[in-house]
Design a binder for these strands. Structure first.
Length: 984
RNA sequence: GGGCGGUUAGCUCAGUGGUAGAGCACCUGUCUUACACACAGGCUGUCGGGGGUUCAAGUCCCUCACCGCCCACCA
C-alpha cells in the first residue's frame, strides 16, 4: 500500500479545502501572549467597494508570504485586514446606483442617502476581502476593521461579508472623531479661506494629493487690455481665457522696464468694461509670455497670493461657480459652462480686435483622480489641519531610523515631502464619511446661519465646540440648539489612524500594548504621501511611537507595454481569472518571482482574441506567461512528490505508529525510530529533527535547529549516506540559506528562483533520477529516508510561496502529524551543518561529464542508445552515476577505433559508436570547440601576461585565472591531439 | 523646473568589480513505468551612446540620449 495522491494537481479542489482547514483550526487568529514575540502588521485597507486587481494580488502575495514565514518561525503573527469607506469613491458609486433608479441624493436628503449607502455597502462591500481569501491570505479575519463603522449596530448583520464579524462595532469612528478633537484642542485645526481644488462633478473639495496633473495640448491666448487713459494698455497671456471675466488686475515683474510706466495705472478689462490696476509683483516672470499676467484672485492660487500683497486687487470676483458654470458676476456670460465661456470670450475679444495671437502651448491641467473631471481652483472656506508640527515628529522618527524604507530611495522621497508639507484641507462636502465633530450653537454663534433650505452656513468666524458626542447645551450661552458641521472628514484623515485605531485606540488596550508598533507596512508608492507619511504623523502624535518599523514599497504592475493596467482599456486582468486558470499557488509564486526592487513590473498576458488587449468584456484571458511558468512548476512539484510517495514502500502511510508519539515501531519506514535513527550520519537527522512534531516552534524567532543528540542505539551503525545524498542535503542547505537571506532582504524574486531551481534542476533532475535504481534495490531504506526528508523540508521552505499545494502534499506524507499542519511547522534555517563542499565538487564533475556525453550522443544522432564511452584522465569519476544518467558504458581506457571527443571536468571524453562517426563532421566539431577554447584562453592569458594584474589583483583571483588557464591548455592539447588523429 | 527609476538574447526580466544568466519563443530528437504543464540536446548577446576610475566594469563615477514615474503656483 503505497501512499497515493491523485494523478494531477487540482487547485480548484485543494484550495478551498485547505483554506477551510486552516481557518477551522484557527491558525490565523492572534491573541496577546506575553510569552511569545509578536510580529504584527495591518494591511492597507482597500476600498470597501473595491475589487481585486493585479496590484492588490501582488501586494497581498507579499503580505501573506512574509506572514506565513514569520508564523513558521514561531512568531505570534497578527495580520489585521480591513476596508476603507473611501468617501468619494463609494459615494460616487451609490449616487450612480441611485440615479439608475431615477433617484437623486439631493432630493432625499442626508439621512436617507446614508441609509442607501449603508445598505449598498453591506450588499456590495467586502468582496475584495473574500478575494484575498481565494489568494490564500492567512490574515486574522476576526480582527477585520472598517474605517467607517459608526453606522453599525451590535451583532453580525450579514452572513459573510468579512466573515460575518465586520459589523460588530469596532470603535473606529470614535477613534477618528477623537483624533480630530485632539487636533482641534492643540490648535491645529483652523478655518481658512483659500483657493482649493474643487471638483465640479463630485461637488467637493479634494486635496492636492488627489489632483492628477495631465499634460494637455492647449493654447496661450494673448489679449490686449486697453489703457484706461486711452493708451495701448497691455497684452496679457493666459491659458484660461474664461477666467478673465473675474480679473481684478494685471501684474508685471518689478524689474521689467517695458512696463515701468504702466505700473500704478489702470487698464480696461474688456467685455466686463471694468477698470483694473496694473501692479508690480515679484511672482511674475518677465520672460514668459508677454511678461504681463492677468490676475484672477478667485480662481488661481498664484493670483490669490498676488492679491494678498496688493489690496487694490481685492476683493476677488468669483465668476465660476460650484458646478463649473459661469456665475452672475460675469454678467452676460452667466450660465455658460467653462468650455462654452472660453469659446465665447475668445470670439468676443477677437471681434473687438483684442485677440493678439494664439500660441500653441502644453501645460499641466489638474484632474480629479477619482472621476477625471478637470479641477476648478475655487476660493472656499474650509477646515484645515496645520501639519508642520506633525510632520516634524514624523521626520524625527524617519531620521532616527525608527522607520526604515525598503527600497532605501523612498526614505528620502518621504523626507522631502514632509519637509515641504503644506497644510491639509480636511473638510469634504460629502455625506459618506466621518462628520466633522464640531458643533455650533445657533443661539449665540453669529458665525453660523441657516440657509433657506435648512442647510447650515458656516462662516469664517465661528466658535465651534469640538466634541465626539453631541453636546446637550452650549457651554457659552446654555442654549440647546446645537448643530453639527455639515462636512465630513477627508477619508485619508481616518485611514491615517489605521495602525493604532484598529488596535483599540484611544483606549489603552492590551492589543495596542502588545502589537503596537507594528513591524511592517507593505504598500505601493502611490500612497506614500497620502497615507504612509500621515500614519507616522498620527502615530507619533498619539502614541509617541512610530506605527511601523519598516515600510516595504512594492512595484506597480503594468502591462507588457508599460502602460497602466485598466479594465476599461482592456489591459486589466482580474487576478481571480489567473487563479481560475492556473491556481492560487501559481499566481502567488509567479508574482513573487517578479518582485525585485524595481519600480514597475511588466505583466505578460494574451487574450483569447489573440492580442495583449481585451477586445471587449467577453474576451477571456488566454495566457499569462509568467504565471504559467509557475503553474508548470506546481505540476512538477506535484509529480515529483507523487513519485516520492509511490516509492516509500508498503510499510508506512497512515498507520498509527510514529504519529504524535515521536517514536514508534512502524518498521523500516521513513520515520524509523525517531530522527536520524537509521543513520550513523547525523546530517539527515537535522532535517528529520525539524520534522519531528515535538520540536515544532520550540524556538522563538528562529528555526535554526540544533544538531541532534547522537542516537545511543545507533552510534555509527547503519548504512552511510552516499554521494548523491550528501550532495542533495548540501544543496538543500544552500537553497535554504539563500531563501532565508533573500527573504530577510525582501528579495522575494530572488528567493523564488532559488526554490524553483533547487526543486527542478537539482532535486528532480538529478537526485530523484539517481535515486530510482536505489529505490528499486533490495534495501531502499536509506534513500527513502533521504528523499522524503528533503521533500518534506522543501515543502516547509516553499510553503509561504505555495501554501495550498505544499500543505496538500505535506499532509499526505507518511509520518506527518494528522493533528498538525504544515502552516505551523518550523521554517528551515541556514542549516550550515549540511553543507558538504567535497560532495558538491564531485557531483559537479559528474554532471559535467554526463552532459558532455549526452551532448556527443545527441550530435552523433544516438541520444537514446546506450554507448561505450571512454573517460580518460586522472580525475575521480562517479562512474555508476554517469553510466546511469548518460546511458553509457564507461571505461577508463582509450577507445578503440574512431570516436567523438570532447573534454569535460578536466577529463577527455570519447564516445565510440561504430560507423557513426563522420570524420569531417567530427573534425569540424572539434575545430569549433577549439575556437571557443582559444577565445577563452586569449582572455585569460591577456590577464596573466599583464604585470599590473599580477602585482595588484588578489592572490586568489590570480590563482583562479591560472587554474582556468591550465584547464584550457589541457583541453586544447587533448582536442588538438584528437584532431591530429583524424587528420592522420 | 527638480527628483527617482529603467535601457542586458526576438519578448519579459535576473545579475551591486573577477571567463554573460532564466523563462518564453525558435531548432533537433524522445510518449525513457512522477511529469509532453515533460525529458535530452542546440541556437541566440558591440550588457543604450560617449568618457573616466581600476590590474579588472553589465556591475563604480561623469555625461548624453531615449522611455516611464513622482513632485512643482511659470500665467
Amino acid at each position: 500500500m503505497s501512499t497515493e495522491i491523485s494523478k494531477t494537481y487540482e487547485p480548484k479542489e485543494v484550495e478551498p479545502k485547505q483554506y477551510e482547514f486552516w481557518r477551522n483550526r484557527d491558525y490565523f487568529t492572534a491573541k496577546v501572549d506575553p510569552a511569545k514575540q509578536p510580529f504584527s502588521l495591518t494591511i492597507p485597507p482597500p476600498n470597501v467597494t473595491g475589487e481585486l486587481h493585479m496590484g492588490h494580488a501582488l501586494q497581498h502575495t507579499i503580505h501573506d508570504l512574509i506572514v506565513r514565514r514569520k508564523r513558521m518561525q514561531g512568531f505570534n503573527v497578527m495580520c489585521l485586514p480591513g476596508t476603507d469607506h473611501a468617501g468619494i469613491a463609494t459615494q460616487m458609486k451609490v449616487d450612480q446606483a441611485l440615479r439608475a433608479q431615477g433617484l437623486d441624493r439631493r432630493d432625499m436628503g442626508r439621512e436617507k442617502f446614508l441609509g442607501h449607502a449603508r445598505e449598498w455597502t453591506l450588499k456590495y462591500g467586502g468582496t475584495i476581502l473574500r478575494q484575498l481569501q481565494a489568494l490564500g491570505c492567512s490574515y486574522d479575519w476576526s480582527r477585520t476593521r472598517f474605517t467607517l463603522d459608526e453606522f453599525v449596530e451590535e451583532g453580525p448583520q450579514t452572513a459573510d461579508w468579512a466573515l460575518g464579524k465586520l459589523y460588530t462595532r469596532s470603535g473606529y469612528a470614535r477613534a477618528v472623531l477623537t483624533a480630530f478633537v485632539k487636533f482641534y484642542e492643540k490648535g491645529w485645526i483652523y478655518r481658512g479661506e483659500r483657493i482649493v481644488n474643487w471638483c465640479p462633478q463630485c461637488q467637493t473639495v479634494v486635496s492636492d494629493l488627489e489632483v492628477e496633473h495631465r499634460e494637455l495640448q492647449s493654447n496661450l491666448w494673448h489679449f490686449r487690455y486697453p489703457g484706461a487713459d486711452g493708451g495701448e494698455g497691455v497684452v496679457v497671456a493666459t491659458t484660461r481665457p474664461e477666467t478673465m471675466l473675474g480679473d481684478t488686475g494685471v501684474a508685471v515683474a518689478p524689474s521689467d522696464t517695458r512696463y515701468t510706466d504702466l505700473v500704478g495705472k489702470k487698464v480696461v478689462l474688456p467685455l466686463m468694461e471694468r477698470e483694473i490696476p496694473v501692479v508690480a509683483d515679484h511672482h511674475v516672470d518677465a520672460s514668459f509670455g508677454t511678461g504681463a499676467v492677468k490676475v484672477t484672485p478667485a480662481h488661481d492660487p498664484n493670483d490669490w497670493d498676488i492679491a494678498q500683497r496688493h489690496p487694490e486687487l481685492m476683493p476677488p470676483i468669483q465668476v465660476i461657480g460650484d458646478t463649473g458654470a459661469i456665475t452672475e458676476a460675469a454678467g452676460a456670460y452667466a450660465g455658460l459652462s467653462r468650455q462654452e465661456a472660453r469659446k465665447k470670450v475668445v470670439a468676443d475679444l477677437d471681434a473687438r480686435g483684442l485677440l493678439v495671437k494664439i500660441e500653441p502651448h502644453t501645460h499641466a491641467v489638474g484632474h480629479h483622480d477619482k472621476c477625471g473631471t478637470v479641477i476648478e481652483p475655487l476660493l472656499k472656506l474650509q477646515w484645515f489641519a496645520a501639519c508642520r508640527d506633525l510632520a516634524d515628529q514624523a521626520l524625527a522618527a524617519i531620521r532616527a531610523g525608527r522607520v526604515d524604507y525598503t527600497p532605501e530611495r523612498f526614505r528620502q522621497m518621504e523626507i522631502d515631502w514632509l519637509e515641504g508639507i503644506r497644510d491639509w484641507c480636511v473638510s469634504r462636502q460629502l455625506w459618506w464619511g466621518h462628520r466633522i465633530p464640531l458643533w455650533y450653537c445657533l443661539q449665540c454663534d453669529s458665525g453660523v446661519s441657516r440657509l433657506s433650505k435648512g442647510a447650515l452656513q458656516v462662516g469664517s468666524d465661528v466658535k465651534p465646540i469640538p466634541s465626539v458626542e453631541k453636546p446637550d447645551t452650549c457651554p457659552h450661552c446654555g442654549g440647546s440648539e446645537m448643530e453639527q458641521d455639515p462636512d465630513v472628514l477627508d477619508t485619508w484623515f481616518s485611514s491615517a489612524l489605521w495602525p493604532h485605531a484598529t488596535l483599540g485606540w484611544p483606549e489603552a488596550t492590551d492589543d495596542l500594548g502588545y502589537f503596537y508598533p507594528t513591524d511592517l507596512m507593505i504598500t505601493g508608492r502611490d500612497i506614500l504621501y497620502l497615507w504612509v507619511a500621515r500614519m507616522i504623523m498620527t502615530g507619533e502624535e498619539f502614541l509617541d511611537k512610530e506605527p511601523y518599523r519598516q515600510v516595504l514599497v512594492h512595484a506597480t504592475v503594468m502591462t507588457e507595454e508599460g502602460q497602466r493596467m485598466s479594465k476599461s482599456l482592456g489591459t486589466g486582468v482580474d487576478p481571480l481569472e489567473l487563479i481560475r486558470l492556473y491556481g492560487a499557488d501559481a499566481t502567488r509564486f509567479g508574482l513573487a518571482s517578479l518582485v525585485t526592487d524595481s519600480q514597475d513590473i511588466r505583466f505578460k498576458m494574451r487574450w483569447k482574441s489573440g492580442g495583449i488587449k481585451a477586445t471587449g468584456p467577453d474576451d477571456e484571458l488566454a495566457r499569462a506567461e509568467q504565471i504559467e511558468q509557475m503553474r508548470n512548476f506546481c505540476t512538477k512539484l506535484w509529480n515529483v512528490s507523487r513519485f516520492v510517495l509511490m516509492n516509500l514502500g508498503d510499510s508506512q502511510g497512515s498507520g498509527a505508529g510514529g504519529q504524535g508519539s515521536g517514536a514508534g515501531d512502524q518498521g523500516p519506514g521513513v520515520r524509523g525510530q525517531g530522527p536520524g535513527a537509521i543513520l550513523g550520519d547525523q546530517r539527515l537527522g537535522l532535517l528529520l529533527r525539524e520534522w519531528n512534531p515535538g520540536t515544532q516552534n520550540s524556538e522563538l524567532g528562529t528555526s535554526e535547529p540544533q544538531p541532534p543528540a547522537p542516537n545511543p542505539q545507533h552510534p555509527t551503525s547503519g548504512p552511510q549516506l552516499e554521494l548523491a545524498d550528501r550532495w542533495i542535503l548540501s544543496r538543500f542547505a544552500a537553497a535554504s540559506a539563500a531563501v532565508n537571506d533573500a527573504l530577510d532582504r525582501y528579495s522575494l524574486g530572488e528567493a523564488s528562483w532559488v526554490l524553483y531551481h533547487f526543486l527542478w534542476d537539482e532535486f528532480a533532475d538529478w537526485y530523484v533520477e539517481l535515486a530510482k535504481p536505489r529505490l528499486r534495490s533490495e534495501d531502499p531504506t536509506l534513500v527513502r529516508e533521504v528523499i522524503v526528508a528533503v521533500l518534506e523540508a522543501f515543502l516547509r521552505l516553499a510553503h509561504p510561496f505555495l501554501p495550498f499545494i505544499t500543505e496538500e502534499i505535506w499532509q499526505a506524507l507518511p509520518g506527518t502529524d494528522p493533528k498538525s499542519a504544515l502552516i505551523v511547522q518550523p521554517y528551515p534555517g541556514a542549516l550550515a551543518e549540511l553543507r558538504d563542499e567535497e560532495a558538491e565538487a564531485r557531483m559537479d564533475a559528474m554532471i559535467e561529464v554526463t552532459r558532455a556525453i549526452r551532448n556527443l550522443k545527441a550530435e552523433l544522432g544516438v541520444p537514446l542508445q546506450t554507448v561505450d564511452v571512454s573517460v580518460m584522465g586522472d580525475g575521480h569519476l562517479e562512474t555508476a552515476y554517469v553510466e546511469q544518467m548518460a546511458k553509457a558504458r564507461i571505461s577508463r581506457e582509450r577507445p578503440e577505433g574512431q570516436a567523438a571527443h570532447t573534454v569535460a571536468a578536466g577529463m577527455e571524453v570519447a564516445v565510440a559508436v561504430a560507423g557513426l562517426v563522420d570524420v569531417s563532421a567530427e573534425q569540424a566539431r572539434i575545430r569549433k570547440e577549439l575556437d571557443g577554447v582559444a577565445k577563452d584562453l586569449k582572455g585569460v592569458e591577456s590577464k596573466l601576461s599583464n604585470e599590473q594584474f599580477l602585482s595588484r589583483a588578489p592572490a586568489d583571483i590570480i590563482e583562479k585565472q591560472r587554474r582556468i588557464q591550465q584547464e584550457l591548455l589541457e583541453k586544447r592539447a587533448k582536442l588538438e591531439e584528437r584532431l591530429q588523429l583524424f587528420a592522420g
